[in-house]
C-alpha cells in the first residue's frame, strides 16, 4: 500500500516514544545515541510505527530496525514514501 508521509512525522513519533527532544532524532539515531532506546521502548517503537503507518512488521524487521536510517528503509520497503 503506497502512502506519502512527511518525514517530520516519523521524527516526532520517535521523539515522543523515547521522550527525547526532536533534535536528538538525527539520521544516525540508534540505541547507541539515545539512552532511552532500550529493549522495552523498542517494543513500544514497533507498536507505534505499526499504528502510525498501518503496517505489520515481519519478525526480521522487528529485530532489524535498530537505527533511524534502518527504520526509514524498512518503512520504504513497505510502501511508505517520505516527503
Amino acid at each position: 500500500m503506497k502512502q506519502k508521509v512527511p518525514e517530520q512525522k516519523l521524527r516526532e513519533l520517535l521523539s515522543k516514544i523515547f521522550e527525547v527532544p526532536l533534535n536528538a532524532i538525527s539520521e544516525n539515531a540508534s540505541p547507541d545515541t539515545i539512552e532511552t532506546w532500550d529493549s522495552l521502548r523498542h517494543m513500544n517503537l514497533v507498536v507505534a510505527l505499526e499504528q502510525a503507518f498501518n503496517v505489520e512488521l515481519s519478525d526480521d524487521q522487528v529485530v532489524e530496525i535498530l537505527s533511524y536510517k534502518l527504520i526509514k528503509i524498512v518503512l520504504q520497503e513497505r510502501g511508505v514514501e517520505f516527503t
Binding site: 516526532e12 513519533l13 515522543k16 513500544n44 507505534a48 502510525a52
Partner: peptide, 13 residues
C-alpha cells in the same frame, strides 16, 4: 478508536 501510543506518552510526559 484508540489514541496512538506516542500521543499517550506525550500526555503522560
Amino acid at each position: 478508536s484508540v489514541i496512538s501510543l506516542p500521543e499517550m506518552q506525550e500526555y503522560v510526559h
